[in-house]
Design a protein around this nucleic acid. Sequence first.
DNA 1: GTATGATTCAAACAAACGTTTGAATCGACT
DNA 2: AGTCGATTCAAACGTTTGTTTGAATCATAC
Lengths: 232, 232
Amino acid sequence: MNDSALPRQASETRDRILDAAEALFVEHGLEATSMRMITGRANANLAAVNYHFGSKDALIQEVFRRRLTELNRQRLAALDRLEAEAQGAPLKPSRIVEAFFGTALALAADTEHGGHTFMRLLGRTYTEPNAFVRQFLAEEYAEVLERFLGALYRALADVPREEILWRFHFMMGAMSYAIAGTDALQLFAGTFDDADPQRLMPRLMSFLLGGLRAPLPVFSAARDAAEGAAAA
Amino acid sequence: MNDSALPRQASETRDRILDAAEALFVEHGLEATSMRMITGRANANLAAVNYHFGSKDALIQEVFRRRLTELNRQRLAALDRLEAEAQGAPLKPSRIVEAFFGTALALAADTEHGGHTFMRLLGRTYTEPNAFVRQFLAEEYAEVLERFLGALYRALADVPREEILWRFHFMMGAMSYAIAGTDALQLFAGTFDDADPQRLMPRLMSFLLGGLRAPLPVFSAARDAAEGAAAA
DNA sequence: GTATGATTCAAACAAACGTTTGAATCGACT
DNA sequence: AGTCGATTCAAACGTTTGTTTGAATCATAC
């Protein structure tokens, strides 16, 4: 028996199902994608999903897990590299942001191996109402968020942590829409030159860093009268 | 017959259904919300939805239409006011951004009449895969986007229009997440002080304007070697 | 009071859903 | 050849889905 070797023929059906599900989830959403659509596209039998994954929910989870685990591993590795280079010195906020969002954008730029497809799916899923998907995302992100937010707190020691938290949240939103919404939002003008993910990276990074570095907000009690109040 | 007067008793069932649907769509999503959940919450008969709206799709459309029409009317009114005040002079970009996003945030701050609920729904819907919802959103937004983008083009005449378009897109993403994701993204730290929509406005506005004003990106051919290349 | 149009209601409809079943098929090892 | 575990398959399972139906109920107008 070869229980130590790789599985017989790597059950390519399993992978076909994952790929088909990923693509269909982007196209129609999680709930609107049926098992029959998935197995049909994967050229597999209807029962194959339940055989290989147990349930539709478990399949959804695995679709996210296989990509997200690798993405977050890369993110942590990038942060590790930064901190090693800095040798204890505080990191540049822009480098931290690049490590987090740049890694994601690199995956989104990969149209060959489905990375682009997945990132479109992921971007939409942060606001997914499905309870167990959110729960799963939270667990999968816990360590990465703790590490990156901690790094930002140290890099911007004079900025209130609450503000950093919010701005990180805003940045996640901008990135998610940039990826998930490029074709969705053809609201925007007829010709939306989205077909250039190579240029998306510097575009988004400029925007994110501009937002991160923006002057802190002033919470004026009566903001109606606040005309030209500037705050540095 | 009183065909000129208001409908007998304003068919309050219709409104109860709309309110129930709106709340449930936020909670569970469009597809995962069934007619029976809606009519159950609205204390109406199952057939009432088809009687008053024709179909579930038509109900979805009406849930968005009743709020979105008013929101975009306010946005256009705010822009009209700005342009009237300026008397032909170019507008300040920050004012344009405030007119567009501030109006939406004001609606999101209204927790009394369901505005907050709706904005959470709307924010998620820009990336909604459902084809006909997107089609409907595109139509509903066409005029507003044309007006506001046009105003930004004139206010930032020296900035390439493509960059403005992208940054507007990024801003939409940041805002949508700020609203739609506050409770969804309790990924972020245990205690996320989201319960203060009064402070969300200045926070988000600072971020958006920082991003809008950020230095334009440089598209370096070989970005691997670009270590400390600074661009102003 | 009675006719009329609008609304509500319980019940049923066919279709699609995720899942389960038990037999058929396959590949590898003895 | 024969056994065994893994995988595939067609068929059916019981629910739930959005929608339709025809009678009951209501408020109003004559």
